[in-house]
Amino acid sequence: MEIPVVRNILEANDRIAEQLKALFTQHKILVLNLISSPGAGKTSLLERTLTDLKDEFTMAVIEGDCMTDNDARRVAATGAQAVQINTEGGCHLDSSMVLSALSSITLDGLDILFVENVGNLVCPVEFDVGEDAKIALLSVTEGDDKPEKYPLLFAESQVMLLNKVDLLPYVDFDVDVALRHAGRINKDIEMFQVSCRSGEGLDIWYDWLRKERSAKAQA
């Protein structure tokens, strides 16, 4: 017999993601899914953000890491709540992992929840974890062709942060090429150039966070 199905293969993930979204909306928590290659600076960005905005927002982090709890410890050192999920080699976080991590986070009074995904430009994009927005982080040491090579990430992200701009004098990264390609793939993407080393450009990122957070609080 033929059984016509037409079911989204990731539906189990999407169903849990929908529940997470409802939960986050109910608590008015802004949730951001941070995606980049290994070493682009996700944890560095979080350390900066959690420290600089400490007095303004209550923030928490879910850290996806293949093997260690290094990132969770770095983030916890800022005083924010941090939960580690070890994916044991898995290439992405999924919604059920985030759901189980929530049991160790106090949602009451939380303003912003960051999810640091596993370092990978491909797989995390497919798995919604209930976020309001995906944030693509690209560093200038990776080459300006990344938006062209990994279009889905840039198509699905609301923000592209170009990190490590302090290193621009030493690498042959063409900022215009990267920004132009990202803009072609996604005409609405907002692009900020930052350095988590010098702090350059982070104010614009913080303003974006303030704007999104207040929109979520009023939703």
Partner: peptide, 9 residues
């Protein structure tokens, strides 16, 4: 990314 049909007995 979806499952379209299944042939089974």
């Amino acid at each position: 990314l979806y499952l379209e049909n299944i042939q089974a007995e």
